[in-house]
Amino acid sequence: MSDTPLAAVVAPPPHDRPLPEAVRLLARRHRPRSYEAIPWLVAIAGYFAFPDYLQLGAQVFIAILFALATDLILGYGGVITLGQAAFFGSGAYVCGIVSAHGWTEPLTLVVIGAAAAALVGLVSGFVVLRTSGLTQLMLTLIVAVMLGEAANKATSVTGGANGLQGMVISPILGIFDFDLYGQTAYIYCLVLLFLGWLAVRIIVYSPFGRTLTGIRESEARMHAIGSPVFRRRLTAYVISAALCGVAGALLAETTSLVALDALSFERSGAVVIMLIIGGLGRLYGAFLGVPIYMILQDRFAQADPTYWYFWIGIFLLAIVLFARGGILGLIERAARLVRK
């Protein structure tokens, strides 16, 4: 080996030779793939195919956005959380409360809900992210439980167990009123889901997003290469919280109602189960996991109204044991087999 100084080695080589294959692969990774159009085509087709189910469709989009936001912190950031409802609920309640007090413009309400959730994320993240493992899990849970209890007690502001009353939402952009059939809600939620997905996609492929993956893979090494690990995690936590808040605000706007279940443990738990089913840290896990969970819940609840959750649990166990990486993980493995 020669005595070239390190600086010369790390400097880029002359530009006249073709890019090495490995470099080209990484340089191309963030480009859009054709399969990424599938969920959006399905959603557009669904609008025309199921005109009677548009309200339900809007709720599915909201759940997907919530799961997508959660994936950023759980799947990519590696933060173990059972308290994402804290952000969802904060977004929903603040949006609802502001609307009930007379500010009814839906887009600004979404921004307000997102900001409120981001603030909750910032404050709680400061504590939660200093811990790890079981402590971290319990802290995320406690934050959500505390907010739920606060919402339950502050009846004059939140309506308590009766839910928040008196929300008024103006037409979107002053034109599109929320209709009974859910046409407006469907398109509105789809557009915001798309924007949220775009944001998450850009973040995941950005240098910042790659460092999140790095932290998940080896926190010790990230420290050793000079990464401000806590700051990176907190940033991701706040972004995730804000997007959860958007989902919560959308729920408030499309149903004109906010109830305590927006902050419930069931919501925090279900979103994690949805992601595990679909595939964690995979950008599209949310798109698969949410519908599958909802269909399963529906089927199981019909077959066994008392113990449907037990069957969900059995299904989850099967996924964890036989299909690590969820449904998407299975698809990835199948695709690799086909290519070989």
Binding site: L26, H30, R210, T211
Partner: peptide, 18 residues
């Protein structure tokens, strides 16, 4: 990852890493 961190690029949110 280490070169990106060393060059102060690793906090970037908008441009793709690639």
């Amino acid at each position: 990852l280490s070169i990106g961190e060393h060059r102060g690029l690793a906090g970037g949110l908008f441009r793709p890493a690639g």
